[in-house]
């Protein structure tokens, strides 16, 4: 179950990073800045683009000699790896690529942030709460249902990665990016083992279901719904 393993590893890296970056950008945007809509447009634009065209673009960006990423790294004196040609760097490359569309989550966090009543912050300020305290005691708890929702949809969406591997690496090098759905696709439509592929599909569903159930089980420890009585800590 090599492909299930790398799919889970990829998701474990990609989902939290997307959430953290999305949150940070949303918080920066939520500081009464000018040009909010311009920044929002820029950050959100990549999120609407996906599919083959984007995969081809990133394949070119990750090109080891002539690619954008390694050219940029050379400015800082770093000789970048071969990314898609490297067994070690191919998964990080996919994580980086997915980070480009962080704007999708960001928009949702921004809406959540704007809905937090300002009097909560005012009260906290009067009580002498500093910036960190305000973030960890007000912002994050108030936003936790939104983050939770993003986490759940993130699992389902990220585990389904297919087009990018199909176009960019075809599972390589040495199966290092043979994500689950690519494996399923090959079994079903290249080896025509429909029965086996169907079984794979069920395993995939159960894996996603398990992850979701685990997340739901942890939810009561950190997701705060308004209207529930808050426990003292």
């Amino acid at each position: 179950m090599h492909s299930l393993k790398i799919t889970v590893i990829f998701s474990l890296a990609s989902i939290p990073l997307n959430i953290v970056f999305g949150l940070v950008i949303a918080m920066l945007l939520n500081t009464n800045i000018r040009g909010l809509s311009v920044f929002r447009t820029i950050y959100y634009l990549p999120a609407i683009l996906s599919g083959v065209a984007v995969a081809i673009l990133w394949q070119w960006i990750f090109s080891s000699d002539f690619g954008l990423l390694n050219t940029a790294l050379r400015i800082f004196g770093i000789e970048g790896p071969a990314w898609l040609g490297s067994k070690i760097w191919v998964l990080p490359a996919f994580v980086i690529m997915r980070l480009w569309s962080v704007g999708g989550g960001m928009i949702i966090y921004l809406a959540g942030l704007q809905a937090i009543p300002t009097d909560l912050y005012e009260a906290a300020e009067i009580d002498g709460a500093n910036w960190w305290q305000r973030i960890f005691r007000i912002t994050l708890p108030m936003l936790s249902p939104t983050i939770f929702f993003q986490l759940i949809t993130g699992v389902i969406f990220t585990m389904q990665i297919f087009t990018e591997t199909f176009i960019m690496t075809d599972g390589g090098p040495a199966n290092a990016s043979l994500f689950y759905l690519l494996y399923l696709y090959r079994q079903a439509f290249q080896n025509f083992k429909m029965g086996y592929a169907s079984a794979l599909a069920w395993v995939f569903f159960i894996a996603i279901l398990l992850l979701t159930v685990i997340l739901f089980a942890t939810a009561r420890f950190w997701v705060y719904y308004e209207g529930e009585s808050e426990e003292d800590n």
């Binding site: 950008i25 920066l28 480009w100």
Partner: peptide, 25 residues
């Protein structure tokens, strides 16, 4: 404030660079 604008500006450039690279290529 300046710090926030700086971060957002750098972020915007990073986000737009792939598209610029695409057009330029």
């Amino acid at each position: 404030k300046i710090f926030v604008y700086l971060l957002l500006g750098i972020g915007s450039i990073v986000v737009l660079l792939p598209l610029q690279w695409m057009i330029s290529t």
